[in-house]
Amino acid sequence: MAKLRHPLPVRLFHWLLVPTMLVELVTGFQLTNFSPRWGLRNVSSAKKLHFAAAYVLTALFAAYLYGRNKAEIVPERRDLGSRLKKFLAYELFLTPKKPEFPKYNPGQKLLYSLWLVLIPFVLLLGWLLYFPRFFQKWIHLFGGLSNVRRLIYLVSVVLTASIAGHVYFALTNSVAHLKSIFTGRT
């Protein structure tokens, strides 16, 4: 039987994360620039969905941060040196030979580590905006409410772009790995 690549908790986390993250991002962009073309009737419903997803996302990511073995995700020194070179050479079509990596390639590690930081950060910013009076001092530290609002927008742009990249690579890079996020095994 094929090797176990993703234990059930990771798969569960992943497939709960996908819809919540998508709802969070889509409604978030709706809140900066609402348009009924996106299927929501009004700003009020965008807000409700956005806040509901934020609660789920916070719980989900807290569990992930607590339970996930980060050693598989955080890049080692080699991931930023020789491995990265091999990875980039292949992805930039400079060499036809597909390199092998322990579990995640350096690109994945960098991406997942970026999210390990950015998703909690964006959630923090969101909670600051949700409870602005309670978090007055924090908001002051971040340069005021309008700065927090701008920051959350910019971070969301980065998150959206990186998720698009993730989905693209997930669908094209390795069918075995793609299968494993559903079944657990390659």
Binding site: T32, Y153, V157, T160, A161, G165
Partner: peptide, 29 residues
Amino acid sequence: HLPDVHLPGVRVRPNQVGLATGVATALGI
């Protein structure tokens, strides 16, 4: 809606940053 982003030497609108990132991502993919 949002204050400008001050990059070294230029000031840009946040939605210009959003647009540029979107275009770059689409091009890359």
